[in-house]
Design a protein around this nucleic acid. Structure first.
Lengths: 209, 209
DNA sequence: CAGGATATGTGCAGAGACTGCATTTTTGCA
DNA sequence: TGCAAAAATGCAGTCTCTGCACATATCCTG
């Protein structure tokens, strides 16, 4: 199934999670910069050298599950009917993912705080988002059947991610006053009219409205 | 005028530029990672320690004039008539800046290459763009007279930058087939219908409440 | 269940970015 | 010219991250 093997994998996962937990705690207590990898490894009962076989960099500790998230979005996008306009599909996919975020508002806020105080982590976050943009963009290229030279998919991807980011930020700083999916959908709608026109596969510009 | 003093400032500028030049050259010849700060400093006739009084990090070397660019955008934005919709103003401002970019396509391409191969530089680039987003967002808040809780300015800023980034990338990878300002304006137009509705100061489209 | 194949953990040595501090050199100016 | 501010430099040290050799744990096959 989703379990390739037994003990070995289990331990690996276990240690990885332990490293994350210890790190988050130390980061919050002493600050990101003041926390050394040596301390983190010690806290997780591992040798410093071993840390780097779990995380490539210290930054990655904070953003461990990003790849999962990306796959989540792409899956959600695949689940949308093909006759739906790309923009509407993005809207729905991001709203669905936004719902996931609701469940872990706390964890997100902790990260957000660390990121806000640590340029390198923040930068790493953006960098990961850029890989999302790339992946999303390719995905949309297929969906739209556009050729590689067409900037439209990239534009759509970049815009959708910008919407998500802006919504997320607003949501976190506003103490989650409005549900995130609502914010996301609202933002998508604000931009929707123009984009539906260009991203509707059937060409009949009638979708969100 | 803009010259606070004579020789001292002059030398400082000189050395800064020399560091940049040497660095770019070495980066291209030996690769970013293989080039040490010691080498760069030596090439510019300075002590290694001195490097850090000119650039905070190695990354910054590649992205030296970013702050200037930001100011350029904000100035251009200020120059737009106040009865113009925010989106149209952004369109015009970015198109104007895009024209600047045309003049230095070569330099941009060199940077682009370095960034494409070096995650940390790329990340730093994104990080700087995030500060732009912040600044732009505040600027727009004033222009629109919206209150701090309104996500619209941030959404506008994020989207505009996404447009610029996507256009720039497309422009560089397509060998500058189409003039950048044209690409930028076209992309803005693709998104424009929905955004004009919300970002029109005249308020015809029931702005953000 | 033995025992080799393989994955994983660990210690060591070291490169290289970056910092704080004390000191020297350069430049601006009275 | 000579003094004060600014800039350059040297030095010691911290920390992240890497390569390599070796130890240990896990798995799998016979």
């Amino acid at each position: 199934m989703t379990e390739p093997t037994g003990l070995r994998e289990r331990n690996k996962r276990e240690r990885r999670r332990r490293l994350e937990d210890v790190a988050l705690e130390l980061f919050e207590r002493d600050g990101y910069d003041k926390t050394t990898i040596e301390q983190i490894a010690a806290g997780a009962g591992l040798a410093p050298r071993t840390f780097f076989s779990y995380f490539a960099t210290k930054d990655d500790l904070v953003l461990a599950d990003y790849t999962d998230r990306l796959h989540r979005i792409l899956d959600e996008l695949d689940r949308r009917p093909t006759d739906e306009s790309a923009w509407d599909a993005l809207r729905a996919a991001f709203a669905a993912v936004a719902a996931d975020y609701e469940a872990e508002a706390d964890r997100l806020r902790r990260r957000f705080t660390i990121m806000a105080h640590n340029p390198s982590v923040f930068a790493r976050n953006l960098q990961l988002q850029a890989t999302w943009e790339q992946a999303l963009s390719e995905h949309l290229m297929n969906r739209l059947g556009s050729d590689p030279g067409d900037p439209t998919p990239r534009l759509l991807a970049a815009t959708a991610l910008a919407v998500m980011r802006a919504s997320l930020q607003h949501w976190l700083t506003s103490q989650q006053a409005t549900p995130l999916p609502t914010l996301v959908q609202r933002a998508f709608d604000q931009l929707g009219v123009g984009l539906n026109r260009i991203a509707d596969p059937a060409g009949r510009g009638s979708s969100s409205r």
